[in-house]
Each structure stands twice: as structure tokens, then as C-alpha cells.
Design a protein around this nucleic acid. Structure first.
Lengths: 247, 247
DNA sequence: CACGGCGTTCCACATTCCGGCATAAGACCT
DNA sequence: AGGTCTTATGCCGGAATGTGGAACGCCGTG
């Protein structure tokens, strides 16, 4: 359904660039003005957009988006299962713990967070997105997907964010094998500089990855000698969430 | 754009009934199975839905909504304009302050909240919805809409939630006139029992209501003698937000 | 005053989506 | 086990639906 897909794309673009005009969106997508215009009007009538008439008509996201809440926020089984183990892990390490889920193989989205109380700490807001190929949570998820889906993913370009980012598909596949072998993924400066993260996947009954838990901390507090210990703890937490989720 | 409108309807239905099956949705909409199925697959590919395979395929809202959510809040100029005046009002009264916007004349949606520090307090999460005809914020908005839109709204049934709910269109119109006269709306047990709220509208340059600010407090702390004072403060806060928003 | 940029509207064409039908796979009762 | 009901998924011809080029009207500018 072409028009539906495009409408949602436009909706997301409005969210990113609001308040935005028709012209800006046509340039962004390279679509005819009339098509974009019609889409905006339709989304507006449906209540998902708001027209903001000051000088020229600018479009903003409507309140409807807030009313449609993902299962993650409504106490879905996964969310509920994760809260306690995450808090426990935070108490053990006093480092920030994140729960992220894959979004249609395009990015990881942070759905929950338990903070540490250090003055210096990493910060990712709930709803923040990050690339699959350059984060620990992304690797944890990719490592447990069937080969065909990983191939499909690596078919696209792997953007680089720094010297450490893995941009070569073959190298990524090798890294994913290491992740499977030791049970957890490690990210050091692949995406955000100065941040280190260790992540393990939460799987459903069939072994399909649903999410990943990660401990993330500033470079300055990361002791390489403790990596195995951290990995064991994170893997244990992920296993506990998986177990609670299945019941 | 029929298919787009329908897709969004289905998306909203999934949000309300998740996790839901294709069959349940076809019954809900009276549409052919194949149509609903195709729509679900498309929304899934776009990342707005997730398939949850346990016994039968059940559908849930996907993580994509989380990525768009922050934009719905922070992006709007209204949000920024409201934060400080709301905090000021909370400091003055030490009661919880809410900012709500109308969603396509169907409900009010809470977009921001500043908490008081009483042990006993009212609680509405960001994203919570409530009926227009049974809340102070709803009345504040309705009172400043053109007569034609109010008529359109009252054409539907006004559901009752308790003895105090106004379910008669004529009575509602009279109440809206009182709201206009004194500048603020009052709600006492019309929707949620034991809760009292006083609200005033935020208008745009043309007098169209964009939102409403409300102070809401438990019955036990509401002193009828202070109503005029509370009303004056809430109205003042709304006026301040309106002024800041216009600049 | 003419011009250019912008948002909005119109309309004929053909692409896209609709929805009936058929198949397949479980689930549940007998 | 066998049979029946419900549910999920795939297919395909026809027609409604969405497409996008072009024209319109509005405003600020040179």
C-alpha cells in the first residue's frame, strides 16, 4: 500500500522537522507538491497533524500520537518483566541500564531506563533511536536474527560514525559470531564517542530477539579487566527478563 | 485518501485493543478480512505495528510511536510557552497543574504536568485522554469554539460517568455560557469521583482554543470559599501562556 | 507594476488497491 | 482419529482511487 507507507513517512518527517511547510517536505522527498499536500490534509483530517497558521501554513504533530501508546508503555508483558531485573542490575553496578527494542530492522529504540547516581553518566532519553550496526543493543539483536535477515540488513550501507564503527558487512558478521559465542555484545566508541556499552538480548520462546538490555557507562569508568564480569551480569539479567516474560 | 484514513483508524483500534487479532478487527470495522490483513502487514513493514506470535498472531503497537512521541510534546511552541507559567502556578498553590489539548473534538489529551508534593494528589499520565463534556479542560475549550462546532459536538451522545455529569445538550450550552462569563471552568465529580478541577483556555491570535490549563486537586483539599481566587490564578496563568505563545 | 515563490485546487489518466474466493493450518468438540 | 469450525495467508480481475502536471490566487519583493 504505497499511499499508506508514504503517509507514515511524511508523518515521521513532520515529527522531525516541525513546524514544517509543504515546500520543505516536497524538497525532502522529491515528490510532487500536490501529493504531499493531499497527504498532509488527509493526516490533518484524521487528527494526526495540526495546521499552524501564522504567516505560511506550517504543520506540526497532533496530540493523537500521544493517545496511541505502545504496548511498552502500557505495562506490556516485556516492559513489566524487565523493570525489576533492570533495577537489580543498576543497584549491583550503579550504572545506567537501558532496555531497547528493534524497530523494523531500521534502528533500536530506547523503551525504558534505570539511572545510576553518578554525576557523570550517559544519557539516552526514552524514544531515542540509534543504528543497529553501531550499538551494543543492536549487535545483541542482530546476532540472534536468522542469517537471511542479517543479509538483508547488511545489503544497505552501514554508515560510519567514527574510526571504530564497523562498516564492512563481512566484519560485522564476524563480530556477530563473537557476540553469539560469548553471549553479550560490546560497544566502544562505535556510535557515540566516550561511551561504552555491554548488551545482551531478550528472546521469545522461539529464539527471536525481542529486545536488548544494556549497561552503558562513560569511558572514564570502564575497566577492561572487569569486562567478563559485566558481561556475565548483563547476560544474567537478560536471561532473567526472558524467563519472567515467558511465564 | 481512503486507505490512509482507514489505516490510521486501524492503528488506533490496535492501540486500544492490543494485543488484537485480525478477526477481532474485521468484526470491529465490518471490513473484509483481506483488507484488514493487508493494512496490518503494511503498518508492520512501516514499523508502526509489531506481530506478537504466541498461539495466533496478535498485533501490538510498535516502537516507532515512541520515536515520534517526543516531537508531539517538545516540538510544539505551545509546550515551551506553558512550562514556566505552569510551574509558577504550582509553586503558588502546591497543587498539580495539567496542560491538555483537544484531539479532533473527540477528547482532551494531557500533554504536560507539573506535580505538587502532597502525599494525596490527583494523577493523570501524559497521554491520558478524557471526554470533552465532562472535564474542566474540555469545558474551557468548548466554551470558546464557534457555535456550529459545539452543536456538532453535542449532536453525539454525551455519556454519563456519575450523577454530576452533564448529559443534556441544553444544559451543557448553559454551563458553557457560565464558563465564558467568569473566564474559567469548574469540574466537581463530573468524570472522576473525588476530583475537582478548575481550568482556563489558551487561545491563539484568532481566539481559537488551542489548549487548557487546569489545577486539579482531591475533594478533601478543595475549599469552596477559595474558588474565585483559584479561578483568578488559573485564568491569569492561561493568559500568560497565551501571551508568551503569541510572541 | 511585473515578477517569483509559495500554498492550494483541479482533472483526466492509469496505477493501485479492493475484496471475493480458494487454500492451508490449527483448534476444538464429538 | 475424524470432522468441523475458526483463523491466517495468497491470488487475481476489475474498478475505484490516488497520481502528478498544470493552472490559480495570494503575498512580498525588486
Amino acid at each position: 500500500m504505497k499511499s499508506v507507507t508514504r503517509s507514515l513517512r511524511i508523518l515521521e518527517a513532520v515529527a522531525q522537522h516541525q513546524p514544517v511547510t509543504v515546500g520543505e517536505l516536497t524538497k525532502l522527498f522529491g515528490l510532487p507538491k500536490s501529493t504531499v499536500q493531499r497527504t498532509l490534509v488527509t493526516l490533518n483530517e484524521a487528527g494526526w497533524l495540526r495546521a499552524n497558521r501564522s504567516d505560511t501554513t506550517r504543520w506540526e504533530i497532533g496530540a493523537r500520537v500521544l493517545a496511541v501508546r505502545p504496548a511498552a508503555l502500557q505495562g506490556s508483558s516485556l516492559f513489566a518483566a524487565a523493570r525489576e531485573p533492570m533495577t537489580l542490575l543498576r543497584d549491583t553496578l550503579n550504572e545506567t541500564i537501558h532496555l531497547s527494542v528493534p524497530d523494523a530492522l531500521q534502528c533500536m529504540v530506547v523503551v525504558d531506563r534505570v539511572d545510576c547516581d553518578h554525576a557523570v553518566r550517559t544519557y539516552h532519553a526514552i524514544g531515542d533511536t540509534s543504528p543497529l550496526h553501531a550499538t551494543a543493543t543492536g549487535h545483541a539483536v542482530l546476532a540472534h536474527l536468522p542469517k537471511s535477515e542479517v543479509d538483508e540488513f547488511t545489503a544497505g550501507t552501514l554508515e560510519g560514525y567514527g574510526a571504530e564503527t564497523i562498516t564492512d558487512p563481512a566484519e560485522l558478521r564476524a563480530e556477530l559470531q563473537r557476540v553469539r559465542d560469548r553471549g553479550y555484545a560490546v560497544n566502544h566508541n562505535q556510535y557515540l564517542q566516550g561511551v561504552c556499552a555491554i548488551a545482551a538480548p531478550v528472546l521469545d520462546g522461539d529464539g527471536v530477539p525481542l529486545a536488548a538490555v544494556a549497561v552503558s557507562l562513560p569511558d572514564s569508568r570502564f575497566e577492561p579487566g572487569r569486562l567478563a564480569e559485566l558481561g556475565r551480569l548483563v547476560t544474567g539479567t537478560a536471561a532473567e527478563i526472558t524467563a519472567r516474560h515467558l511465564r
